[in-house]
Design a protein around this nucleic acid. Sequence first.
DNA 1: CTGAAAGCGCTTACAG
DNA 2: CTGAAAGCGCTTACAG
Lengths: 358, 358
Amino acid sequence: MEALSVKGSFVSSTETHQPVPAPITLDDLARLGGVSRATASRAINGQPGVRADVRERITRLADHLGFRPNRAARQLASGRSNVVGLVLPSDDLRVDPYAASLSHAVARSAARADLGLMLHVVASEPGRTVAHILRDGLLDGLVISSVAIGHPWVDELLDSSMPAVLIGRHPHRDEFVTVDVENRESSATAVTHLFEQGCRRVGTITGPMSRVDVRQRLDGYRVAHERAGLTVDPSLVIEGDFQRGSGPGAAALLIERGVDGIFVGNDEMAIGAMWACTALSVRVPHDVAIVGFDGTGSGLDTHGEVALTSVVQPFAALASTALDLLADQVAGTLHRRRAHHVEIAPDLSIGASSVRAG
Amino acid sequence: MEALSVKGSFVSSTETHQPVPAPITLDDLARLGGVSRATASRAINGQPGVRADVRERITRLADHLGFRPNRAARQLASGRSNVVGLVLPSDDLRVDPYAASLSHAVARSAARADLGLMLHVVASEPGRTVAHILRDGLLDGLVISSVAIGHPWVDELLDSSMPAVLIGRHPHRDEFVTVDVENRESSATAVTHLFEQGCRRVGTITGPMSRVDVRQRLDGYRVAHERAGLTVDPSLVIEGDFQRGSGPGAAALLIERGVDGIFVGNDEMAIGAMWACTALSVRVPHDVAIVGFDGTGSGLDTHGEVALTSVVQPFAALASTALDLLADQVAGTLHRRRAHHVEIAPDLSIGASSVRAG
DNA sequence: CTGAAAGCGCTTACAG
DNA sequence: CTGAAAGCGCTTACAG
């Protein structure tokens, strides 16, 4: 590390007295509003037991003064912080568009709900971190990406008493509150779409079969065959790892085996598959039609290539539902440890990668 | 949104009395340690005025008990939260690997410094957000990605009295505390590397010329030419937009104009450029050698393609330096509004995209 | 419906 | 070097 230019000089500014306008407090609000702190507090928090006109007057005044309750004080007094944590696996933010989209959606939902969002990236300091997150007292609850599961301390977090909701499913435990995209039917729809485009020999590149959602998507692939009166050729089912790099090889194999359509388990691998097609001079969608999953493929590839048809994750709905479920737990209306699974149906976004003329 | 399966049942657990072990407080620590709260507080905070053996005993005890000071209480009492905010542009997390890498690095640095990190994604609610961030009282300071600049409320944030450090430079204001990668020399090094590989006609695809760093990188490109005794052919300088999609077109143009090497302003466009090469049957690096900038191109493209040579952003150092500079402002040793610019020298990571046999 | 008062868990002058 | 005490800005029983 090297400081190439340092133009700063250190100054102590004792001259200015009130550089920062003192933030107004509940006390100010109450005094200016001619009520007690208790009443002011109830008014701005929408609690019962305040005469309508008083509430109206106080909230208006609060707005006008730009009053924002101090979070720390509020938390200390109430035990609630209105801050939730988002737990993500270590490297995913960098490498995985799914995680990036999810973070983005959760951040926006949180902002809309006036919740703070603390980012917790798995992997920093194994042992200490869990304790930190838990005992800081700064968090009301956690939104945990199921992609983070596997890391030792994520399970610790799940087993703690802190309210939590999982986005995605746990690979082998069912007792959590989860929200996930609907995988099976939506995958069937995607594959059926390929059949409708005239494909007769459709292969699939799956994610890691250890994952629940991956198996569900494969189920959907099978269901679509059944419905079309076709049988699945097992040699057309190839397991990938959800990384872009596993796409080309798998696709090349499928092409060798004569497919005219591929349902790919996520967009990253689908992009890899499209590369393979380019490299092998296989035309998309004419020779091989391709459908992906996630809907993350478009942002990254506005390079004039073929737009990818994909089952689009309902990120915004996943995020806001997760936050709602978390709020229910915090409020005590939802038990943290009773299995409670919500699934949200995604849409199929149709691009040129699967649409055949005629 | 559709709840496909709801297996949960609502239970109120009044049977168990202490489901959550009551977190231990400073009071507990003091009592168990046989000192006053004041002394306990000073001991664990490393403040002067505590006998060495007492401090030792108390910290040890704190560790043993797993004591963590309640952040809210600490903040309310001291006025400091040990939480910083990270401000990012709205969509970047999804689309831009640079922003994702940066977030990742800041998150890790913050964790290491025992700082909380609140994520603020620009664009949610224009007006309210600034006030929220500022008046919540939850933040000690802000780390702002210069990529977020341009959005109206980011400037508001910069003009507020909250401590802030910019990662990257402001396009036209110089009075902030910033930390940035060194652009000029490192770009010169990258281009010189191409000359050393035998390239004689090196073009460049720049980012948007409105950005300071883009102009600096272009300067480096020129400097390298001077040093090699070559003159710059202006027709080989093409402006891109830092998005992947602008890579292929620019690269095709340069290839048409006979380049044998390209210095690309960021990895995203470099990846696009490599696509163009594949499409045009131009061999990399044999026909055209390519160097990118950022070091974000590798994670995304482990697809067996040619590894990209790139000037690698020192994300970890940028993040930890930013946090240090922020701490200095909070401590009052660094003035928030005196220009103070730190530059960190990146490394050139050499991959197959630029190395010619012989 | 409203208010006086206690208390959340810390930090920090102020005395000793 | 150490402790008693006040106070940070809220919320929430508890009385009225």
